[in-house]
């Protein structure tokens, strides 16, 4: 009975329905963006607050900036004084942070790529065991290792050197890096490697000219992650570096908040922004590599 509809009724129904259906189509987007917007709001506001307070003399009620100033950014050209002591130059800290992150990245990629290949391709006794234990190693919080690491660094005469901390950090990072890289190597079919051997390469040459280029996205991702983790490293550097010559940005920042009574929020905001800047730039420039996933060639085996 109800299936029978008069023509006019059908027309009006469709007319009135159209705008509703358009709304309905868009509703999921509105909801999704609404939810995402609300949840990210505090974070975005925080960044805005950071930016504003770094350029303001004072924050009214804690969040309304009053009068513009560059006073807070003075650390860029002078060694600022804070809490009675003169802080080391920001540029020393920046250079050290940079050196630390870059060297960490290179070490990690170099070792991780070789270890990952071995884990993925070479059958050797204890391979399974090694793969399981490396993950456990990564699960170890570095705090739990601090005392032992202190003894070792002291024994080796590497306490209070960037190089010493670098070794420790690399050791802690390698398991995960090797694991990630192993995953990328696993996706390279054996046949392609074999084809290279038959076409006249040695195993090493195949690795360099065929396999490595095929896992480029993996190497890019690992480099980015290790650079960022080096840049943001705090605990190890704070514990094992004491001299101002070897200070890094994270420790510099820490000096600003060490005494809760003497925190200069304007200065803190400015230094924080300065600290974040390379990371943001880095992300903007490497986003594509991070997202890129190799399509691979051939039909696979």
């Amino acid at each position: 009975m109800e299936q029978w509809v008069r023509p006019e009724a059908a027309v009006t129904a469709s007319l009135t329905r159209r705008p509703v259906s358009k709304w309905k189509k868009r509703l999921p987007f509105f909801i999704a963006y609404g939810v995402l917007g609300i949840t990210t709001m505090p974070i975005i506001l925080m960044y805005i607050w950071l930016l504003l307070s770094s350029f303001a003399k004072q924050m009214k009620y804690g969040f309304i900036p009053v009068s513009f100033t560059l006073e807070n950014w003075k650390f860029l050209w002078t060694n600022v004084e804070h809490g009675g002591t003169t802080l080391p130059s920001i540029w020393t800290a920046t250079w050290n942070s940079f050196l630390f992150s870059i060297t960490l990245t290179m070490l990690e990629v170099l070792i991780g790529v070789m270890a990952g290949y071995a884990l993925s391709r070479i059958e050797f006794p204890g391979r399974q065991m090694l793969m399981k234990t490396t993950l456990i190693l990564h699960a170890f919080p570095s705090v739990a290792l601090l005392i032992a690491v202190y003894y070792i660094l002291n024994f080796l005469g590497l306490f209070d050197t960037l190089f010493g901390v670098l070794l420790v950090k690399t050791a802690l990072q390698i398991p995960m890096t090797a694991w990630i890289v192993k995953g990328f190597f696993d996706n390279v079919p054996w046949d392609v490697e074999w084809a290279g051997l038959i076409d006249g390469c040695s195993r090493l040459k195949v690795w360099l000219t065929i396999v490595l280029p095929m896992i480029k996205p993996g190497i890019a991702a690992v480099s980015i992650f290790s650079f960022l983790s080096g840049w943001s490293e705090f605990l190890l550097l704070y514990m094992f570096i004491v001299s101002d010559d070897n200070i890094t940005l994270a420790s510099y920042l820490q000096k600003l908040i060490s005494d809760p009574n003497l925190v200069d929020y304007g200065l803190l905001s400015a230094v924080s922004l300065f600290y974040m800047l390379p990371v943001i730039l880095f992300f903007i420039f490497t986003q594509k590599s991070l997202m890129e996933v190799s399509a691979g060639g051939g039909k696979g085996v």
């Binding site: 079919p189 392609v192 074999w194 084809a195 038959i198 390469c201 040695s202 095929m214 399509a295 696979g300």
Partner: peptide, 20 residues
């Protein structure tokens, strides 16, 4: 003998082209 010393040309069942 290593494969590279055998002077062989091979077509693999899966082609095994170099994707890059």
């Amino acid at each position: 003998w290593e494969p590279k010393d055998r002077n062989i040309g091979m077509v693999f069942q899966s082609y095994a082209l170099y994707p890059h």
